[in-house]
């Protein structure tokens, strides 16, 4: 097994030698008018930030706000025929809105905005499985967790291991991964939900989505966190261990990534990891175009983000 340093060094070496499976853009605060095959918009760790940060906030004053996010998403939808809207978890907790509404407002408004799926963050357990289920009545989209067993709990009707979205000419598989409970979620709040090894369950999810559902693109909504020194699983380790995931949209560590990390593999595929900080300050965007590159990869990716309320 390669250690992390070897893995990163290998990624760097491959990056210099391989063809380009991914097209990368740093543009911000713009809406691309050219239509692509698929546009993925995403958030993570929105943490009940319904309104923009107040003027006396110690960070991000004036930024964010779900109504402005909705407006941006609507504008993108006007120019793109195929849009996926995803979230990597921790929708709950962080402002007085959660204290009063327990997450139901977030899920109601996210449903109206057309979110397709969300991962389960550790804060989704803040009111226990019953509290989650109460709020999730407002969610018109599934929560995804391939490594959580929610059977015989109130969460069961709202949680799937993965979903498949069919578009004209291609199919997208999306699965979720939740973080281990130890040190993060009190046993009283996790109830009878069981968390299992995310790596092993990611492997089986990818295999199902690729081999059985014949998905052309596989997206992981991960709430594992970007990177840790300790032994806790994270997005980097997931990328090291598992092939076949094209895009990891991550959360938990509140990491503001200016650009995604892209790990190319010897077979011509690659895995892109991206995080968008927290509190809905940013909305990430990945555009997917099929057949536009002679790289051995069936599609190319273009990545950017929008800062909500930025000048």
């Amino acid at each position: 097994m390669m250690n992390r340093r070897d893995f990163l060094q290998r990624s760097a070496a491959l990056a210099g030698s391989l063809a380009m499976p991914a097209l990368f853009s740093r543009d911000r605060n713009s809406v691309k008018m050219q239509e692509t095959d698929l546009t993925i918009l995403y958030t993570n760790d929105t943490h009940a930030r319904i309104e923009p940060f107040p003027e006396n906030a110690r960070r991000f004053a004036g930024l964010g706000g779900i109504a402005r996010r909705a407006s941006l998403i609507d504008k993108v939808r006007q120019t793109q025929k195929n849009v996926l809207l995803l979230d990597a978890g921790d929708i709950f907790h962080g402002t007085p809105w959660f204290d009063v509404y327990g997450g139901s407002v977030d899920l109601d408004l996210m449903t109206r905005m057309g979110y397709d799926a969300a991962a389960i963050g550790n804060h989704e357990f803040d009111r226990g499985p019953d509290g989650f289920a109460e709020a999730a009545q407002k969610a018109g989209f599934p929560f995804l967790a391939a490594n959580y067993d929610v059977r015989n709990t109130p969460m069961n009707p709202f949680v799937e291991r993965f979903i498949v979205r069919e578009f004209s000419g291609f199919r997208v598989g999306i699965f979720g991964l939740g973080i281990g409970f130890s040190g993060l979620i009190d046993s009283a709040n996790s109830g009878d939900v069981r968390a299992y090894d995310p790596i092993r369950n990611a492997e089986t999810a990818v295999e199902s989505l690729k081999e059985y559902y014949r998905c052309d693109i596989i997206i992981c909504l991960s709430h594992l966190g970007f990177s840790y020194i300790q032994t806790r699983n994270d997005d980097l380790r997931l990328t090291e261990r598992i092939q076949g995931i094209d895009i990891i949209i991550g959360g938990h560590t509140h990491t503001f990534m200016e650009e995604p990390l892209i790990f190319p593999r010897e077979n011509g595929s690659s895995t892109l990891i991206t995080h968008m900080g927290h509190s809905g300050v940013r909305v990430g965007r990945i555009d997917v175009s099929f057949g536009s590159e002679n790289s051995g990869s069936p599609f190319s990716l273009s990545s950017r983000y929008y800062t909500i309320g930025d000048t």
């Binding site: 097209l23 990368f24 190319p264």
Partner: peptide
């Protein structure tokens, strides 16, 4: 050479008005 910038016509949007 792994990364390259796209060259696509864009419409700038700042301060999206709330929906």
């Amino acid at each position: 050479a792994f990364f390259k910038a796209s060259h696509i016509e864009e419409t700038e949007i700042h301060y999206p008005a709330p929906d």
